[in-house]
Design a binder for these strands. Sequence first.
DNA 1: GTTGCCTTAGCAATCGATTTCTGACATTCT
DNA 2: AGAATGTCAGAAATCGATTGCTAAGGCAAC
Lengths: 321, 321
Amino acid sequence: MTRIADVARRAGVSTATVSRVLNGKQVRDDLAVAVRQAVDELDYSPDRTARSLRRRHSDVIALVLPDIENPFFTSLARGVEDVAQDAGYSVVLCNTDDVPAKEERYLTIAESENMAGVVIAPASTSPRLGALMSRGRGIVVVDRRVPDAVDQVTFDNVGLACRATRDLIADGHTRIACVTGPATTSTAADRAAGWRQAMAEAGLTADDELLVHANFRVDGGQAAMQSLLALDPPPHAVLATNNLVGVGVLKTLAEHSAADQFGVGIIGDLPFATSRTTDISLTPLHPREMGLTAARMLVERIRGLDAPPRIVQPEPPPAPQ
Amino acid sequence: MTRIADVARRAGVSTATVSRVLNGKQVRDDLAVAVRQAVDELDYSPDRTARSLRRRHSDVIALVLPDIENPFFTSLARGVEDVAQDAGYSVVLCNTDDVPAKEERYLTIAESENMAGVVIAPASTSPRLGALMSRGRGIVVVDRRVPDAVDQVTFDNVGLACRATRDLIADGHTRIACVTGPATTSTAADRAAGWRQAMAEAGLTADDELLVHANFRVDGGQAAMQSLLALDPPPHAVLATNNLVGVGVLKTLAEHSAADQFGVGIIGDLPFATSRTTDISLTPLHPREMGLTAARMLVERIRGLDAPPRIVQPEPPPAPQ
DNA sequence: GTTGCCTTAGCAATCGATTTCTGACATTCT
DNA sequence: AGAATGTCAGAAATCGATTGCTAAGGCAAC
């Protein structure tokens, strides 16, 4: 491997000068030209390990997610990656399976790899961010709220669920169920609260039997929907509070062909739906924009922005042309 | 941040001894105990940047994929991550969008970050792996074939497409179209070849107008399906050579309700299908197993396995219980 | 009792970059 | 002309771990 010393020798300068040229510091023109030529000739690219050691931080951002197989999070990842890429950072994707221990392990790695920053959709209700924060690393929490004083990008989940429920009510449904995620995730709790609120506003009963806590995956939605259909009387409509739960609900309904005029509301997108979705009330979330916003905020922090913690919603997507 | 010297001081030993304890080398028992206690008390974890610099390789594996939003590749990523995790490696996910320039950039980064190895589903027909290979890094190519002498995990794509086409023929279809991906990807070309072969075997004509090259995404499948339905006469059935193209095909058909008894074969899985899939001929690919196999092979290489390049198919998934 | 082997702890070199510090030289001002 | 100031290249220190080498100590064999 060619090292900086090789380049320096070939260009007839010191390693300090090579480093300065590569890092955009002021250097005499003729020397800079010689260095750049030597770099090209030797096809030199600096060892990032050594650079990180000396600089005491790397150009890598950790993206810690509960479920890398959920299209919501892959879109989010995509948004983060696009911004990071432009800003010269690479993204490490870390999958926690919503298991706090795995999450903690990844946070430790982020710390001991001296990563520049972390974007995290927390599995734990209170992830151990202290070490990273005290080291001055950038942190942005996405999707789910945490009590810590850090930048956060979240949706107005209560409002979204409330509006989605009102849509179902407007369609004439009265007995509306809600399938939400684990009670420990703030998104699941907030969206259930929104459903409850809309039902109360409309004077409808939000029976306990109509609220099902499932896991936030397809099988969770299927199991929940099956138990709802077994109720006596069954509901007329259902609000699925996340995309995969929605898929499970639709899959189950597709098998009970009797359930044709069953009302379905889904909070989230269905990029890989194979049926028509025109008769479903979809609340798109734009996870990519959430990722873009989070990554922009993170880059600002990494570059030294010193401001009180910001809690924002994702910037809306560009209007379709 | 606590450094190894702090631990050494507290335990009353040299840094060399601390390093040896942490790396499982032989050390006198009482010293080892003292070191471990000091590590616990100080909550010390070694700086991986410094370690990588000295060791000349890190504990990070790059996973270079053309489309991180495709569930096929996220499942594959999941498989790679699970194995890597167990073996003590972290995984960096790199998205190339099937753009060779992005791919090359990531390969350069993998090299200059001294990553332990790379699993790559190549965007380029001949990615520049030379630098990594000469540095002795582990490399495993997945999904798409390359001419280089490296470990590769690929499907028997010709055979898969051939069998899937035969299924459609067995269902009584004769005018069977094929929607495949960009001609530059080996998977798209091989699967198209399999379709052609099965058609020829059955004495059916594989007209040029029945073979459509699309992109390997949902919109590609939709556009292709629309053009096929516009043919005169239109085909009776279609083989979609990847999962997202299949989604596009099904979406389009769902809107042309006339096309009820249209035959559909899809090579790939539809984890997020929202309709019944019982009347579709699905060829599951088990990308997670592909990831598991690739990662296991990569870990073997990283650990020093010196054997001729291996070209294998993924191990079959465990039988459902 | 002496020699020689073996184990193992510590010193110091090392990985490859960045950056502080120093001094050479040029320029400006009096 | 001489002093003061500024610019910039290079020498060397530095980041924090791992590891080759050295030497000390323990033990066995003669």
